[in-house]
Design a protein around this nucleic acid. Structure first.
Lengths: 223, 223
DNA sequence: ACCTGAACACCGTTCAAGT
DNA sequence: ACCTGAACACCGTTCAAGT
């Protein structure tokens, strides 16, 4: 019968790759480990996939597809929903950050860029500024989510060695380090150490998106 | 005498690593190639440097130090100068992008974040919004420069196979691809294909920085 | 204290040989 | 057409042995 679970196919390879990426990150995805999981030889995978880079692209597309469908709303609200969708997708699949961080975006990532751009147009941004606006949004979203993913994987690594290191405990350590800096040399970090300790990642992310939206609003010709 | 050119030292290792990174990128920096260049064994390097990650950190700091000194000016102008300094540093050393893209920033990168934050404070941004503002700036700067670096290395790779592929020619190809998309599915990309073809990277980057600065200005209590 | 270079435990990718 | 698995050309890192 068609679609037997144990038949090797590009789909099954990509799906398994996504699972391994989620579990162990990009360096955990190995053709040896992958072929072991799939109970084949390494060479069998190369029949369906050109190389590791193409496999990562396929995994990225698989995860991004449908990760950012957005309910109809006002353009700003749709941009926030799109942003949050990407943020959450990267939170669940931290390896996505590395794939998206270095454009040029293609396939699914390009689709997201397109959707952001549509909302930028709907906001009434003048044509010459649309490219800048949509790019700024995409770069910030991907960059902020990448930071978040890096922090999370960092936390996971430390927790592996010291299992009781909670996220708040780690933030407290970094925050204390900033507080301990010489206020003469580091007045800013010294000042905001408290904000670092108490900040919520999602809230902080949305505040950043709103900051860019405010900048975009300033580009609009006054009605 | 002290500082003989052929004495192995952490400094000389890092300096040579930077040269190799600039020439061949991160995957070109190998302990074998590095030790060959330095005319030693691979193990000798490990006497001065813990591992490759630490070596990359040291190379990042070496390149970032002094790369972003900025003449005194109005806060906005200083932020633009800081941003442009980082942009240019990543342009010359594309491997920097990968190092900075995944914070938490440390040593020299943290210093740059501090300097950005000082200017945000000078702009009169209310305390609760300072963290968001400085972070948004840093993320955009690093993200945009990373895109640029990726495009450049992409261009270099294609040029290696097809030596007459100029940057403008490559942009024209991508632009034409966007123009060829179905305007029903991709109205935005179809529209801005022309802007992609004609845009100047530095100008586009500065426009993005100004966009965020405009958003930051909107945070300021009206005088 | 510092350096050597072989050795270990891995990689991605290829390819003759099988079915 | 698709799969097997050994082999190739690499990695980062370690470590006994040298000076």
């Amino acid at each position: 019968m068609a679609n037997r679970t144990d038949a090797l196919s590009r789909e099954r390879i990509v799906a398994t790759a996504v699972q391994m990426l989620d579990a162990t990150g990009e360096e955990g995805l190995t053709f040896r480990a992958l072929s072991a999981q799939l109970k084949t030889g390494a060479g069998a995978i190369y029949w369906h996939v050109a190389n590791k880079s193409e496999l990562l692209d396929a995994a990225t597309d698989a995860v991004l597809a449908g990760a950012t469908t957005v309910a109809e709303a006002a353009p700003e609200a749709e941009i926030r929903a799109l942003a949050l969708g990407l943020f959450d997708a990267i939170d669940v699949h931290p390896w996505l950050a590395g794939q998206l961080a270095q454009g040029p975006w293609k396939s699914e990532a390009l689709r997201i860029f397109e959707r952001l751009g549509q909302r930028v147009q709907a906001l009434g941004v003048p044509a010459p500024a649309q490219f800048t606006s949509a790019t700024a949004l995409m770069i910030f979203i991907v960059g902020a989510a990448a930071q978040n993913a890096a922090n999370a994987s960092n936390a996971a690594k430390i927790r592996a060695a010291q299992p009781d290191a909670s996220r708040t405990a780690m933030l407290a350590v970094e925050s204390a380090a900033w507080e301990g800096l010489d206020p003469g040399d580091y007045p800013f970090l010294h000042d905001i150490a408290g904000q670092l300790r108490e900040h919520d990642d999602r809230e902080q992310f949305l505040a950043g998106v709103d900051l860019i939206l405010a900048g975009i609003a300033a580009l609009r010709p006054q009605a």
